[in-house]
């Protein structure tokens, strides 16, 4: 905290941090309540299938669950290597 904020008693705006943290944890807990967390297994299987055809790094496949309004969307992101 700078000396200016000490003098003027400026307080940190922490509510936005609280909101962000809550958005993440609530989304995760809601997903957990809805069913078993199959995402890691799905990711593993996807890697197995895709590496049959393309040589990629396991890290190049990202699987995530996202909430859009009332729908849950599974997002699969596969980065293909540049020179095949």
């Amino acid at each position: 905290m700078s000396w200016l904020s000490l003098i003027f008693g400026e307080k940190k705006a922490t509510a936005s941090v609280a909101k962000e943290r809550l958005q993440l944890i609530i989304a995760r807990e809601r997903a957990g309540v809805a069913g078993p967390d199959f995402l890691p297994d799905l990711q593993k299987d996807l890697i197995a299938v895709i590496t049959k055809y393309v040589r990629i790094n396991p890290d190049d496949i990202k699987v995530g669950l996202e909430k859009q309004g009332n729908y849950e969307v599974i997002e699969v992101n596969i980065v293909l290597p540049e020179n095949r």
Partner: peptide, 16 residues
């Protein structure tokens, strides 16, 4: 406190 960004606002809570 809500206005000064120190506390979640009621709209934040409703959104969550």
């Amino acid at each position: 406190r809500a206005e000064e960004g120190e506390m979640l606002t009621y709209t934040d809570i409703q959104e969550l």
